[in-house]
Every structure is written in C-alpha cells, then in structure tokens.
Design a protein around this nucleic acid. Structure first.
Lengths: 157, 157
DNA sequence: TTCCCATTTGTATAATTATTCATTAACCAT
DNA sequence: ATGGTTAATGAATAATTATACAAATGGGAA
C-alpha cells in the first residue's frame, strides 16, 4: 500500500532531522504530519527499517538510522559524489551514470546503506541500474540517495 | 573500581562475539563468567557503552557495539594495521609507533571508535600517545585496540 | 463473482528496558 | 577518626517496546 511507503519515508525523514527519544514522541510528530496509526505498527516499522536506539547525552536515548555516523564514511560519500554524473528513470528503473570506474564503488555504498526504497543495484563500469521497491516513486529513490550521499543534493536539483 | 572496568570489558567481548537479544540473556552469560549484578546495572552499562539494539532476521533483535559494521571501515582498519609498527607503555601511557604519515589516520580511527578504555589520543607523524582511563590496565588498552583493529591481534602477541 | 492467501494493522498485554529512590562504599579533607 | 561528597549498585516500579491473536483488506486465480 502507498500508505505504508509514505509512512516509512516520513519516519526516516523525521529520524534523520530530529533527535527523538521514544516511539510515543515519534508518533506525535507523525500525527502532526497527518499520519495516524498505532505504537504497534510503528514498532514494526522501526524494526523493518533497522532503526537503532542509542544513548545520547542530551536526551537520554535517541533513534538513529543505520550508518548515520560521519567519520570514515564521509570519505566514501565524497568519492561517490565526485564520480556521480547523472540519474534518469525509465520504466520506473533508475539509471545512474558515473565517471568510468566509479560505478562499482558507488553501488557498494548504496548496497551497504541498504535503504528499503531500493531492492537492489546492478553496476557496470560507468552505469548503475537502480531497482526500486514496489510503490516507491522516482522522487522517493532520489530522497533515499540523498540520505546516503548528502552531497548529491546539489546534483539532483 | 576494578570490578566495573572488568564488567564493561566482559560485556563488550560478549556482545562482539555473540548474538545476544536481551539484557536477561546477557546477564546469564555474564553470570557464567562469574560476574553477578542486576539488570539495572547492566542497563546503565549498555547506556554508557552506547550499545545499539538492532533488528536481526535470525534472533529478532541483537545488541551491537557502535561501529561494528564491516563494509567501508574494513578498508580503514586494514590501512591502520598496515601502518602500525609497535606499542609500548610508560607511566601507564601507551605509545604507538607507526610508519611515517600513518599516525593521524590511525588516531582518527581510534577516536571515532570512542572506546571507554581510552580518554584520548595525541598524534604526531609517526607516533601516537594513548591516554588510558582510570583503572584501565595496559592489557585492557590492548584489548580495546584489537576490537577496533582486529588485524592487530597478530602484532600484539 | 467467489474463494483463498498473504499482508497489514489494531488491541491487548507480555516482555523488556530505564530510572527513581535509597543504601553502601570509597575517597579526600580536616 | 570523622564528616562530606561522589559514585556505584540494588530494589522496585515506571516507562517503553515487541508481539500474539484476531480482524480487515487487497490481489489473484478459478
């Protein structure tokens, strides 16, 4: 259902952009966005998205998406952004063009992040085929890519 | 107290080497090792160590230490192991010798891992000063380093 | 059109974890 | 030796999360 996909995306965005310390708090934020469902459903969604609950000095605990930490990954992300040339969609599939030799590395980065929007990727030398999940729009895929490689934001406008 | 440090190290090692899905399960494993304390204390320890609880297809949920994922970090860890030459202790401080130019990168890797055994590091070009936490032995520091850079295990024997 | 199956979701509650409050112990200064 | 402070821990329970069970919905096949 489109509803579920919409909900999952909203959850990812809220967790990315806010420090949230409980499912109750997250439910309230989602309701403000017009999304209504129960704590049980949210618990299943967080499990599906493999969200972490981690200690935070400011709020006690906060939720985090997998691989949100900077550090070493920032190097890989920069490399990916450098090699990325363009993305287009055909028949709902995404086709990323890269500079020669960059495709495998960028595909590996996407695979490591394991976003629910993307079922899988196939990489050549300078091309990556992106296979979106059911009910996931082109815009959703682009959002997911920006979460993985923030520097792409400028290139996808 | 020595007890607390011992307990924290045991917790880290158990989580690193086992798939553990609840604090009750972890408590039982610790009791088998001769360490006895309550769930309340364990909860505080997991918070202190910033342990994640993450979804796992096999066990429902498992605990994970920060930065346990492979992927990109394995490259950095290999780089670090390659450049590491030796470690010695003086006045409880650890002094790591590296190949020229490697020290800053290795120190950054240690800092990113943020192990509770180590208060901080100071890196030159081919030397890293390791400042251990109170009540942390030289052996504890070596254990922490092996958790961060597993390939060091052979070099520290 | 009907039936079957799979998936999703809610309700209720079981399971699990986090924290308040109190106690104890260690350390340091006097 | 004593008193004060800080930290650690346990008991109890509050808070939070996960799931069993049932119901509803949608899709596909006959």
């Amino acid at each position: 259902m489109g509803n579920r996909t919409e909900r999952l995306l909203a959850i990812k965005n809220l967790i990315t952009n806010n420090k949230i310390s409980s499912q109750e708090e997250l439910l309230l934020l989602l309701e403000k966005m017009g999304l209504h469902f129960t704590q049980a459903t949210l618990s299943r969604d967080l499990k599906f998205l493999k969200v972490n609950k981690i200690a935070d000095p400011e709020k006690g605990y906060i939720y985090e998406l997998p691989d949100m930490h900077g550090g070493i990954n920032e190097v890989a992300e920069h490399y990916a952004a450098q090699g990325f040339t363009s993305i287009q969609f055909a028949h709902h599939l995404g086709v990323i063009k890269t500079m020669p030799g960059y495709a495998p590395g960028i595909a590996a980065l996407i695979d490591t992040a394991n976003p629910f929007e993307i079922v899988g990727t196939i990489a050549g030398d300078d091309t990556i085929l992106i296979i979106p999940h059911n009910n996931v729009s082109e815009r959703d895929v682009l959002s997911a890519l920006v979460l993985i490689i923030p520097e792409l934001k400028d290139k996808l406008t």
